[in-house]
Design a binder for these strands. Structure first.
Length: 150
DNA sequence: GCCAACGTTGGC
DNA sequence: GCCAACGTTGGC
């Protein structure tokens, strides 16, 4: 089992939305490096839910990957913010996964706290200028985050 | 709202 | 294939 970190803006889709929906298709990723990480996910992998563009930003919960290699439906929807006119159903560009809510942490682990506990090499989200919205997390780092969450 | 970081696009 | 222009992300 691998661990990941996935970002979403709480104003767009936050942990409260996932807790209500229980599962969701993680659509809208339009960065190739992030997409490649989505493609390499396996059922049963776990992902930290990171609230970006929040005050403060940080890790707020945990979810589980339940379906992999899904074609992101929003790429074909002309009315969607995530519409990609260069993508076709025959040759879709963007794949994603379905995730399931596991837990919301009792309190958010802020980006500031993450910076105090991890180096940029161990946890990419604390790298300056980092814009990647899906990233892998090494197991020892994930376990430390889980310990901090409780 | 600002703006640094940085990925993408397109002319050449 | 280079790289300037442009658009987006995301912390602050």
């Amino acid at each position: 089992m691998n661990y990941w970190l996935m970002k979403s803006e709480p104003e767009v889709y936050g942990i409260a939305d996932l807790e209500r929906d229980r599962t969701t298709i993680w659509d809208g990723v339009r960065n190739y490096q992030a997409r490649n990480f989505l493609r390499s996910m396996a059922s049963g992998d776990r992902a930290f839910f990171y609230h970006s563009n929040a005050s403060p930003p940080g890790i707020i919960g945990l979810m589980q990957v339940v379906e992999t290699d899904l074609v992101d439906p929003s790429q074909f929807d002309a009315s969607s913010h995530y519409y990609d006119p260069k993508s076709t159903p025959e040759k879709p560009r963007w794949q994603t996964v379905e995730v399931e809510f596991i837990e919301r942490f009792p309190s958010l682990i802020s980006l500031d706290t993450l910076r105090q506990n991890f180096s940029p090499d161990d946890l990419w989200v604390v790298r300056q200028g980092n814009r990647l919205s899906v990233m892998p997390i090494e197991i020892p780092v994930a376990e430390k985050i889980l310990a901090m969450a409780r």
